[in-house]
């Protein structure tokens, strides 16, 4: 039963790493894109927020599983 807590902690950290890498890559892409084409920065910002939110959603699935493990 104690291993469930360990798994929950590790899993939460791993899903945070995954989401961090993903959102970081999106931020990088968006920054480069709007630096090259400042006139398109509004569109880029919108699609950046959407894709960041979608990635965050997948990370949150992981976090939800970890929360279930930890509180059970």
């Amino acid at each position: 039963m104690e291993f469930a807590y360990l798994a929950a902690g590790l899993g939460a950290g791993l899903s945070a790493i995954g989401a961090g890498i993903g959102i970081g890559l999106i931020g990088k892409g968006a920054m480069e894109g709007s630096a090259r084409q400042p006139e398109a920065s509004n569109d880029i910002r919108t699609s950046m927020i959407i894709s960041a939110a979608l990635i965050e959603g997948i990370a949150l699935f992981g976090e939800a599983v970890c929360a279930i493990l930890a509180f059970k």
Partner: peptide, 13 residues
């Protein structure tokens, strides 16, 4: 179903 589920969990979390 995962789309609205993620929508709920995101705001809540």
């Amino acid at each position: 179903f995962t789309k609205p589920f993620a929508l709920a969990i995101r705001l809540f979390a």
